[in-house]
């Protein structure tokens, strides 16, 4: 029944992540991809919003996109799980629908 939401925009430039968080239901999964992963770094002003969302949604970040942007393992917010493309496929297959917040 759950939805996989994908966010590919930087939360510091656009409101895609905010809009996604506003529309995600408890039990949904949120996957940060491309510039969306910038929100996953510790210490950013968006971190509290993501931490709050973790209470009801599972949050993932695409590892290759983190690595490409110089965000290394210890810098990712606690509780955000890193997945590879195969993990992305598993998340999409495991949800009932995929909603992209472009």
């Amino acid at each position: 029944m759950s939805t996989l939401h994908t966010v590919n925009k930087s939360a510091y430039e656009r409101n895609a992540l905010k809009s996604c968080l506003d529309h995600a239901l408890p039990g949904d999964a949120i996957l940060l991809i491309e510039d969306g992963v910038l929100a996953a770094r510790k210490g950013g002003s968006i971190a509290p919003a993501l931490t709050a969302a973790k209470a009801s949604c599972k949050i993932y970040a695409l590892g290759p996109d983190l690595a490409a942007r110089g965000i290394v393992a210890g810098q990712v917010l606690e509780g955000i799980e890193t997945v590879d493309y195969a993990g992305f496929v598993d998340l999409a297959a495991g949800a009932s629908r995929v909603c992209a917040w472009l």
């Binding site: 029944m1 759950s2 939805t3 506003d22 529309h23 995600a24 239901l25 949904d28 629908r97 995929v98 909603c99 992209a100 917040w101 472009l102």
Partner: peptide
Amino acid sequence: ELAKIIADQDVVMSF
């Protein structure tokens, strides 16, 4: 309300 509507869809096309 819109969040619940999304949760009821089969295909979501984003533009």
